[in-house]
Amino acid sequence: MAKYGIWFRMKCKVANPSSSSCEPFVFSSENEAKIPEILSRYPPSRQVSAVLPLFELAQRQCGGWLPPSAIETVTAMLGMSLVRGYEVATFYTLFNLKPIGKYHIQVCGTPPCMLRGSEELLTTCKRSLGIDCGETTKDGQFTLNEVECLSACVNAPVIQINETYYENLTEESLQDLLEELAAC
């Protein structure tokens, strides 16, 4: 490896939301009804704190990702500037700023899982799905990501798929699991 990294300046577009030209985001009536309760959790002078639960609500409504229009709607609702909302949305790995597949596979890569074979699990996922971390399969079924500790080290290695934990996995059991999911 070179002693010093190669550095060059890039003049390109920032990985920013493409534009706000898409349809404005509106909460469904069902979700709209939940908003007063969410806002009531925070003191009147700290209503902006509701940005996290509202982003999460919006992400669920949008099928697992947070489009720019949703960021715009929620920040306007809370009277905060757009970039403040964007800072929050980019800070938390909870929020996906690109559309994701039907199954979002999050492989834990923190040491306990790594020692128990998470690297092999990741390779299995990549090989079996034909995608790299951060990518989605062409059929829109799977999105793969490596994440930090999922707090289930007791049964490492762990994978989270959507909201379910799969623990004590081996390469074989993971392969079976992926095939099972692909079938349904």
């Binding site: 920013n16 939301p17 720019p68 757009l82 970039v83 964007y86 800072e87 980019t90 800070f91």
Partner: peptide, 15 residues
């Protein structure tokens, strides 16, 4: 704003 976190944090505007 400072978008992203950790090593990928950068200063940017929205849009």
């Amino acid at each position: 704003g400072a978008i992203g976190r950790g090593e990928s944090m950068e200063i940017a505007t929205y849009l």
